[in-house]
Design a protein around this nucleic acid. Structure first.
Length: 882
RNA sequence: GCGGCGAUGGUGGAAUUGGUAGACACAACAGGUUUAGGUCCUGUCGGGGGCAACUCUGUGGAGGUUCGAGUCCUCUUCGCCGCACCA
């Protein structure tokens, strides 16, 4: 055995061994339980970052742990390979996106392999390969047949930087999720997937996911946004300039508070509403206001702080139940994209309407009697809008009804007049998947002048994307590619044109997990193996995908299920959202007023007397820099750490250990160079221990008479087993930082040198050798999921076996855990006062007696009487006095 | 505004779920090994008081339940994340 811990050599040899043995090929033998462990696949951006290392280390620890627990494990890896960065790189470097992507994949694959992940590489896939995206196209056509996919022209979110349409989910605060550019509204035809048809299921089935974090489920539920209410119409006789009745003389609105319908004093419509457009035609002031609203609505970020503003259109509509005339206002707080783009306004029972009415001096009519709030003051009181504590008043025949009864009665009356009905309104809208981009999956449609939009026949799939295009930044290069565009109509055979839009890349990632399982199926999207492996037992990835990717994947699964392609309802049984990797941010204001960032290695920290960080200075000029605390690793802040240099300097095992040790998986992880060194120090100590003490497997065959072994050795053994017990408990909680701690505790216990008589054949010497060999073999196995290379090597060198992968998972022995004597704490009135050692089988009365007579306790008993004594077996005694 | 999560030493974080708070590390300090630096080893390390045995205090804050609370309940402050005029 080498005296030094030569990690580079150790890791390369271990990786070579696994590759030669094909050690991680996933196979189901039907006898063992299956465990499908999936980490979100990376976008091949160029090289791995620390977030990847963390993500995949968590997955690998779980995979290796379950494998040793006796599961058949599938841990695949692939590439989310379509997408815009490839096009942007192509524009810059004049290289086809395909080449850029494949080069990146090759490099990043090497990086992943150098980290020693137990991945079944035979199942590797890239979404930009025709063999994969063929099935995107195939399923899209099936969805088209079922009416789940359809084409429509709609106002869409247009990202002016990426020159493409964005789904609503991809617009964040009015800006493109990737570019941050202010999104414009455009009228563009495109294909949509009817995710709203599944809204109810997507919401309800969240309850089938106990293994998901609460906040992710909440975010999805909010996103789906179900509200139950009544859709009804005000009646009018408003005609456009041609004399045509607008919307058949009905102003439709949606409300969740139909019980307040008799309190309506006006209606408010969105700026884009037809009635607003009409009214603006001869009212320049109104037209100007509407224009202002429309511009404002693009900047959704400002909406939150925006003052409620509005303007009277002069138009009047009739209340469907009271027949009263109601004025129609344009309100900047009414959204065209939600509900009907118009609302009934009840200032007495809606906070927004209240503010609006106050501002414009519109009538406020109370229609609900609120418990404990008889009088309506000038200021809004929260209970005015509380549907749970009121009955209808001033509402004619509905007076005295509570919320539910009132809604039922009102909905029934509206229905009788065919002017309304109960309705469930969703915030979720259909998923627009057309993208005016090149580097994506072609939408399999052919446009024929005679036949219209014709689906590409199955036998012509895949519609292959040419891989040699170099985009120049001016839109989609497919539009200029005659060889791609020109084709024959599958229906009539006449010359026709191919659709050049490609699919949103979220389509690619919506089902890749199912394809890993059926990776070798050539003539079907998925085969029987998918049903055997699915659902994913553990999915691991960033919280940033809490809505988009996870919602789309759930939707896609349900579509595939309804087409009888798969049998599961939900694709991911358990979800772990790993925390981000942070590092210090150092910056300085430049003379020009900008901010200059410093990389951590360019900085020296200044400590105060207590060792607290006081400040920092730049190594280059010795001048102070601002220490901004921790932030996500990013290029712009210059606080990223390159995994590659970490692996080269310390090895993959150190990188993996640090990642697991520094924080629990769900929490943010703060980078620390000294923490990395500490992790490396630990692994070196493990190696040194093995080299110095030779805890060889042969020692496990020594015959030990445990009854006569010294207490010191027994305690040492107990500590090791105790740490293992804790670690196994923590593994169940997926709390890996304390598993790493337990490894350190075990080594600490092993290193407690035991002074035993150095006589050959002495029982204590044997016991000590046994304890060390036993403990070290347990340490190696416990550590192996986190640090597979060093443990693989030592397992073999110390003769424990050929391959630690096939070793059984260590469990603590009861015999090693029991103590002859137990230390018990003694409390008086809940305060810790003394401790004592009692025999393990001492009974309660005995313990009570010992505690009360304890010298450290006696002084607290003077002048008071003992009221009660509580004995917690094995732990403590509490003497209650008074 | 709504929803979710969190607050424990100088720092990252433990506390087997109501039973010895601060495990395991990092940093710092002191000492040893070393020609020196690094490595490595030993010790100290929440705060106050005491020469000491010890003692008081302590998990953002205020109450409460309990023999006993970091953990449960109520209120409150601050921080992070998500959604946000959703009718």
């Amino acid at each position: 055995m080498q005296p030094q811990y030569l990690f580079t050599e150790i890791e390369q040899r271990a990786q070579q061994y696994w590759a030669e043995k094909n050690a991680f090929a996933a196979k189901l033998d039907g006898k063992k339980p299956k465990y499908y462990c999936l980490s979100m696949f990376p976008y091949p951006s160029g090289k791995l970052h620390m977030g990847h290392v963390r993500n995949y280390t968590i997955g690998d620890v779980l995979s290796r742990y379950h494998r040793m627990q006796g599961y058949d494990v599938l841990q695949p890896m692939g590439w989310d390979a379509f997408g815009l960065p490839a096009e942007n790189a192509a524009i810059q470097n004049k290289v086809p996106p395909a080449k850029w992507t494949y080069d990146n994949i090759a490099y990043m694959k090497k990086q992943l392999q150098s980290l020693g992940f137990a991945i079944d590489w035979s199942r590797e896939l890239a979404t930009c390969k025709p063999e994969y995206y063929k099935w995107n196209q195939w399923l899209f056509l099936r969805m088209l047949e079922k009416g789940i996919a359809y084409k429509k022209t709609q106002t869409v979110n247009w990202d002016p930087v990426d020159q493409t349409v964005l789904a609503n989910e991809q617009v964040i605060d009015g800006r493109g999720w990737r570019t941050g550019a202010v999104v414009e509204k455009r009228e563009i035809p495109g294909y949509y997937l009817g995710i709203t048809q599944y809204a109810e299921q997507l919401l309800a089935d969240l309850d089938k996911l106990p293994g998901w974090p609460e906040r992710v489920k909440t975010m999805q539920a909010n996103w789906i946004g179900k509200s139950i209410g009544v859709r009804f119409a005000f009646i009018h006789d408003i005609r456009d300039t041609m004399g045509n009745l607008i919307d058949d003389g009905k102003l439709w609105v949606f409300t969740t508070r139909a019980d307040t319908i008799m309190g309506v004093t006006f209606c408010a419509v969105a700026a884009e509403h037809p009635l607003a457009t009409l009214a603006a035609q001869n009212q320049p002031e109104l037209a100007a206001f509407i224009e202002k609203c429309k511009q404002g609505s693009v900047m959704e970020a400002d909406m939150a702080t925006m003052e409620k503003e509005g303007m009277d259109t002069g138009l009047k509509v009739l209340h469907p139940l009271s027949g009263e005339q109601v004025p129609v206002w344009v309100g900047n707080y009414v959204l065209m994209s939600y509900g009907e783009g118009a609302v009934m306004a009840v200032p007495a029972h809606d906070e927004r309407d209240f503010g609006f009415a106050k501002k414009y001096d519109l009538p406020i009519r109370q229609s609900i009697a609120i418990e404990g709030a008889a009088f309506f003051s000038d200021a809004w009181v929260e209970s005015y809008g509380d549907k749970s504590k009121g009955v209808c008043i001033n509402s004619g025949k509905y007076d005295g009804l509570r919320y539910e009864a009132a809604v039922d009665a009102i909905a029934a009356d509206l229905a009788a007049k065919t002017l309304g009905e109960k309705k469930t309104q969703w915030r979720l809208r259909d998923w627009g998947v057309s993208r005016q981009r090149y580097w994506g999956c072609p939408i399999p449609i052919i446009h024929c002048d005679a036949c219209g939009d014709v689906p590409v026949p199955d036998e012509q799939l895949p519609v292959k994307l040419p891989e040699d295009c170099v985009p120049d930044g001016s839109g989609n290069p497919l539009n200029k590619l005659a060889a791609f565009i020109n084709c024959d109509c599958p229906k009539c055979g006449k010359p026709a044109k191919r659709e050049t839009d490609t699919m949103d890349t979220f389509v690619d990632s919506s089902w890749y997990y199912a394809r890993y399982a059926s990776r070798f199926s050539a003539d079907a999207m998925v085969d029987a193996e998918t049903s055997q492996w699915m659902p994913v037992d553990q999915y691991i990835g960033g919280i940033e995908h809490a809505i988009l990717h996870l919602l789309y994947s759930r939707f896609w699964s349900k579509v595939m299920r309804d087409m009888a392609l798969v049998s599961y309802d939900e694709p991911f049984a358990n979800l772990l959202t790993q925390g981000m990797v942070l590092n210090h941010i150092f910056s300085r204001r430049t003379d020009k007023g900008g901010i200059e960032y410093f990389a951590p290695e360019e900085i020296g920290l200044i400590y105060d007397a207590n060792g607290k960080i006081e400040g920092a200075k730049a190594l280059a000029d010795g001048q102070p820099v601002d220490f901004q605390g921790m932030g996500t690793m990013s290029k712009s802040k210059r606080n990223g750490v390159d995994p590659q240099s970490l692996i080269e300097q310390y090895g993959a095992d150190t990188a993996r250990f640090f990642m697991m040790f520094a924080a629990p998986p769900e929490q943010t992880l703060e980078w620390s160079d000294s923490g990395v060194e500490g992790s490396h120090r630990f692994l070196r100590r493990v190696w040194n221990f093995a080299h110095t003490h030779k805890p060889h497997s042969a020692s496990l065959h020594l015959a030990v008479d445990w009854a006569s072994v010294t207490r010191v050795i027994k305690t040492q053994r107990r500590e090791i087993h105790l740490a293992l017990k804790q670690a196994n408990y923590d593994l169940g909680k997926q709390q890996f930082n304390t598993v790493a701690s337990a490894c350190m505790k075990m080594l600490n216990a092993l290193e407690t040198s035991i002074d035993v008589a150095d006589t050959a054949g002495d029982n204590n010497t044997f016991a000590s050798m046994f304890v060390i060999a036993e403990g070290f073999s347990m340490l190696l196995r416990l550590l192996s999921p986190i640090c597979p290379h060093i443990t693989h090597t030592m397992w073999r060198e110390l003769g424990y076996g050929d391959d630690i992968l096939t070793a059984f998972w260590p469990v603590p022995l009861e015999a090693a855990l029991v103590q002859d004597e137990i230390e018990m704490m003694i409390q008086v009135n809940g305060k810790l006062r003394a401790s004592m050692t009692v025999a393990k089988d001492a009974d309660k009365a005995n313990i009570e007696q010992l505690a009360l007579s304890h010298a450290g306790v006696q002084k607290y008993l003077e002048g008071v009487s003992v009221k009660k004594v509580i004995v917690v077996p094995g732990k403590l005694v509490n003497v209650v006095v008074g």
